[in-house]
Amino acid sequence: SPPKPKTIVLPPNWKTARDPEGKIYYYHVITRQTQWDPPTWESPGDDAS
């Protein structure tokens, strides 16, 4: 059997959903933003550039 996916701790107000093909995506319940990649926690002042 395939390994279980890691449990991802989502930031507040993010949910997972499935598209009609069964792929998992993520959406923000307030902004209605959707994305394929797991959302990352906002870390103020932490600039990755």
Rank of each mutant, 00 (worst) to 15 (best):
T16K: 11
E21D: 09
G22V: 01
E21C: 09
S43F: 05
D19L: 04
Q35R: 10
R18W: 06
A48N: 14
I8T: 12
A48H: 10
P38M: 11
P39N: 05
T16E: 11
H28T: 00
D47N: 07
P12D: 12
K15R: 14
V9E: 07
V29R: 04
R32S: 05
D37S: 12
W14I: 01
P11D: 08
R32L: 06
T7C: 11
A48G: 12
T34Y: 03
D19W: 00
W14V: 01
I30Q: 06
E21T: 07
W14L: 00
P20C: 05
V9N: 15
V29C: 10
P5H: 08
N13F: 14
W36N: 14
K4H: 07
W36M: 05
Y25M: 03
T40I: 02
P44E: 10
R18E: 07
S49E: 06
R32D: 11
D46P: 10
Y27P: 00
I30T: 12
P44A: 09
K4G: 00
Y25A: 02
W14P: 00
W41E: 15
T7F: 15
W36F: 15
P39K: 00
W36L: 10
H28Y: 03
T31E: 02
S49N: 02
D19S: 10
T34H: 11
E42Y: 03
S1F: 15
P2W: 06
Y26S: 01
S43K: 14
I30R: 11
T40G: 13
G45C: 12
L10G: 03
S49G: 07
Y25T: 02
W36Y: 15
P5R: 12
P11G: 07
K6Q: 13
E42W: 08
Y25N: 00
Y27S: 04
P5S: 15
E21R: 11
P38C: 07
S43C: 04
P11M: 05
N13D: 11
A48W: 10
S1T: 01
R18C: 10
S43L: 11
I24S: 03
Y27A: 03
P20I: 08
N13S: 05
I8C: 14
K23S: 06
V29W: 03
D47E: 13
V29D: 10
P38W: 08
T34M: 15
S49F: 05
G45S: 12
K6C: 06
H28R: 00
K4E: 00
P44D: 10
S1L: 06
A17T: 07
P3S: 15
W41K: 15
T7W: 04
G22H: 04
D19H: 12
T40S: 13
D47S: 13
Q35M: 10
S1A: 03
P2R: 09
K6N: 12
I8V: 15
L10R: 02
P3A: 08
Y27K: 07
V9A: 08
P11Y: 02
T7N: 14
Q33H: 03
G22L: 03
P20A: 08
K6W: 05
A17N: 13
T31Y: 01
P2L: 15
E42F: 14
H28K: 00
P11C: 02
Y25R: 02
W14H: 03
E42P: 13
K23F: 02
E42N: 08
W14E: 01
R32M: 09
Q35K: 05
P12H: 03
P44W: 06
P38Q: 07
A48D: 13
I30E: 06
K15S: 05
D19A: 03
D37A: 11
Q33S: 04
Q33N: 09
W41Y: 15
R18M: 10
P20M: 10
P20H: 08
T40E: 14
D46W: 05
Y25C: 03
R32A: 06
T34S: 05
K15V: 15
T16C: 07
A17L: 08
N13T: 09
E42C: 06
Q35V: 08
P38H: 11
T40V: 13
R32Y: 07
H28E: 02
Y25Q: 04
G22T: 00
D46L: 11
Y27D: 04
P5T: 15
T34L: 05
P11E: 04
L10Y: 07
D46E: 09
P44Q: 10
A48R: 14
Y25P: 01
I24L: 14
N13M: 13
Y27T: 08
E21V: 06
K4S: 12
P20F: 05
T16I: 09
K23Y: 06
T34E: 05
Q35W: 02
T16A: 12
N13A: 03
W41C: 13
P3F: 15
G45M: 10
S43N: 05
A17C: 09
P38N: 02
R32N: 12
D46G: 09
T34F: 11
T31S: 09
I24Y: 05
S49A: 04
T31R: 04
Q33Y: 00
P39I: 01
G45Q: 06
A17G: 11
Q33V: 07
R18K: 10
P3G: 14
I8W: 12
T16H: 13
D47A: 11
I24H: 03
G22M: 02
P12G: 05
K23W: 01
A17W: 01
D37R: 07
P3Q: 15
T40W: 07
T31N: 01
L10N: 04
Y25E: 00
V29L: 06
T31W: 00
G45F: 12
P11S: 04
K23I: 04
Y26V: 03
K6G: 13
G22N: 03
K6S: 14
P5W: 02
T7R: 13
S43E: 15
A48F: 10
H28L: 00
S43W: 07
Q33W: 01
Y27L: 03
E21P: 00
R32W: 01
P12M: 12
V29G: 06
D46R: 06
S43G: 09
S43V: 11
K23A: 06
V9W: 07
H28S: 01
I8R: 13
P20G: 11
A17F: 03
T7V: 09
P3L: 14
V9L: 10
G45H: 02
R18L: 05
W14K: 00
D37V: 12
P39T: 00
E42R: 08
W14C: 00
R18H: 06
W14S: 00
P38L: 05
W36H: 15
W36E: 11
A17Q: 01
D47K: 08
P39A: 00
K23C: 05
W36A: 07
H28Q: 02
R18Y: 10
K6I: 11
R18Q: 04
I8K: 12
Q33M: 03
Q33K: 05
D47G: 12
P12T: 13
K23T: 09
K23H: 02
T34R: 14
W41I: 13
N13K: 06
D37Y: 06
R18T: 09
P44H: 13
P3H: 14
P12N: 06
R32G: 08
E21S: 13
A48L: 10
A48S: 11
P2I: 15
D47W: 06
G45W: 12
S49Q: 11
S1N: 15
T40P: 12
V29Y: 07
E21A: 09
Q35G: 02
T7H: 14
N13L: 11
L10H: 07
W41V: 13
S43H: 07
P11A: 05
T16Y: 08
A17E: 06
W41G: 12
Y26Q: 01
Q35Y: 04
Y27I: 10
P2A: 14
Y27M: 05
A48E: 13
R32C: 05
P5G: 14
P38A: 09
P5C: 05
P12K: 13
N13C: 06
Y26H: 02
V9G: 08
S43T: 11
H28W: 00
D46A: 13
T40R: 11
A48Y: 13
K6T: 09
Y26L: 01
R32F: 02
Y27G: 02
I30C: 04
E21H: 02
I30M: 08
P39G: 00
K4W: 01
W14M: 02
T34P: 06
W41L: 13
P5K: 14
Y26G: 00
G22I: 01
V29P: 06
N13V: 03
E42D: 04
T40D: 05
Q35L: 05
P5E: 13
V29N: 02
P38R: 07
Y26N: 03
D47C: 08
Y26D: 03
L10F: 09
K6M: 12
W14D: 02
D47H: 11
P20K: 14
D46I: 08
G45V: 08
W36K: 12
W36R: 14
I8P: 06
P20Y: 05
V9M: 15
K4F: 04
E42S: 12
V29Q: 11
Q33R: 06
P2V: 10
W36V: 13
P38G: 02
T34C: 10
K6E: 08
P12A: 14
I24F: 03
D19Y: 03
W41D: 13
W14R: 00
T7L: 07
I24W: 09
T16M: 15
Q33G: 01
P12R: 12
K4I: 09
K4V: 03
Y27N: 03
P12Q: 07
T16G: 08
D19R: 03
T16Q: 14
I24G: 03
V29A: 12
Y26R: 01
S1Q: 02
G22A: 01
G22R: 03
T7M: 12
D37Q: 07
Y25G: 01
P11R: 06
A48Q: 09
P2Y: 15
D37I: 12
R18V: 07
P2M: 12
H28M: 00
D37K: 11
T34W: 08
K4M: 11
I30W: 04
V9K: 12
P38I: 09
K4N: 09
D47P: 08
P5I: 13
T31M: 01
P39E: 00
E42Q: 06
P20V: 06
S49M: 09
T34A: 06
P3R: 15
T31V: 01
K4T: 06
D19P: 04
A48T: 14
W41M: 14
D47Y: 11
P11F: 04
K6V: 13
S1D: 15
